[in-house]
Design a protein around this nucleic acid. Structure first.
Lengths: 247, 247
DNA sequence: TCAAAAGTGTTCCTGTTACACCCATGT
DNA sequence: ACATGGGTGTAACAGGAACACTTTTGA
């Protein structure tokens, strides 16, 4: 199990205090936050009760949906103006967090009542974000639960339809990397071609021809070569590249 | 102006009666319904007050979002299980129908009050649907307003952000026809290659090479050739094709 | 038989696939 | 010098663009 644990926060108190009148009462945001470490794609999950779920939140009346999403991402990771893309709508009729919330409240000793507004049925807007794991730092607040980066291939039991949301993001990432070669925050600013090559293979879940890959990447004109890197590995030293700054 | 007018219904009465407790109070569906006639793409719009808007509706608590969308499409066009695809979310913070509704209520002599639930801020889920104009038949109900098929290039003034929703659909249709060659309901069951060719040109808004087009279409294996059509046009008679029935 | 419209073929070009080869470096 | 891994080159192939050509039909 290649997870590393932190302490994380559910901003339940804030949500309770602001309550019904501050948020759209039937819309939630779920966020698939994706990182890359040790040649594996990872996904940030929170633990509530016995199962896990995606980080998420609600939309304030004075926020646009996109603002709310950026805000949630910042709350969860500390990142501002990071990569963030709308994924899909999940609108099945029985989508409600009642069971999850009850378990969470009982576990943390908080009072739970049937008519809390977040027991409503929620339609969820799913987003996904690519982040540099090392640059994220979680905020800790009143009610702390575990959170962890899970390998995509080792997802735990998750609440509701959250596993299918993650899988939707997984597929979407595949499509997106074919169109825009951007790796956003998945690699450090400077990286070698073999590293980029590895990442693409991991995302696409298949072998790519090394020579073809190099030519394709260079022909996009998106990358610029830096002076060579000194490595102590057996073979030849790879060049370093970085994304041209225009984007 | 190549519009043809009908009489149409806003199911306002139903919405009023069922009211607050039957619908998700902050989510609406807007639908870009697209047809094709006389070599022009057309879009179905309703008139309320002085401006036009997209057909749409709300989501009942006992419906999934997709069910609600199918239901709305059926109400507006009479079509069941037709082509219907999710488009995008429109979630700006000041999206509300207050102004539109007030104008509509005053015009039709209905009582209007500030606190009607549909004066709320709404986040809108946009869908688009390709239909055969000749197979649509509008339902008429308590409150009738004009509705019309507008050419994409001659859109009228529209309420709120509805014009940008239409344009999003216009772009999406372009992308989609590149990937799946399906024309769904835009052409009759049997059609000639020149007709299909015309349609693609209109959707993509550019000239295509006739020869390349024909080979590409036939190479997909999606179409099967029927006995020739008798036409009284000057030149050679074109073959008829139809989509193979598997899809 | 000629013009109009439908449909086919040929050439060029670009991007993909698969494979072989060369280069730099540490042991 | 040689194994290891980084990087380049070439031939075969498929799909797209541009253009010329043949076929069928009504006047």
């Amino acid at each position: 199990m290649s997870q590393f644990f932190y302490i994380c926060s559910m901003d339940v108190k804030e949500i309770l205090e602001q309550g019904n009148n501050s948020f759209l009462p039937n819309l939630s945001i779920d966020m698939v936050i994706i990182g890359y470490k040790g040649n594996v794609l990872k996904c940030l999950l929170l633990k509530i009760g016995k199962n896990w779920l995606l980080p998420g939140g609600y939309i304030r009346l004075d926020q646009s949906v996109d603002e709310a999403a950026q805000n949630i991402l910042k709350q969860r990771t500390g990142l501002e103006n990071s990569h963030l893309k709308f994924l899909s709508v999940f609108g099945e009729k029985n989508r409600q967090f009642k069971k999850v919330m009850k378990e969470f409240f009982e576990k943390t000793g908080m009072e739970w009542t049937e008519d809390y507004w977040f027991n409503n049925r929620f339609v969820s807007l799913a987003y996904y974000s690519l982040v540099n794991i090392d640059k994220t730092h979680p905020s800790v607040s009143h009610f702390d639960e575990a959170f962890a980066w899970f390998d995509f291939d080792e997802l735990p039991e998750m609440w509701m339809d959250h596993k299918s949301i993650v899988n939707t993001a997984r597929q979407r990432l595949k499509e997106d990397i074919r169109n825009e070669q951007m790796t956003y925050n998945l690699l450090p600013k400077e990286f070698t071609m073999p590293e980029l090559y590895q990442l693409h293979q991991v995302i696409l879940e298949k072998k790519i021809e090394r020579s073809r890959f190099q030519k394709k990447m260079l022909s996009t004109g998106l990358f610029e070569r830096l002076p060579e890197l000194q490595k102590t590995t057996p073979g030849r030293n790879p060049y370093q590249y970085r994304v041209k700054i225009d984007l």
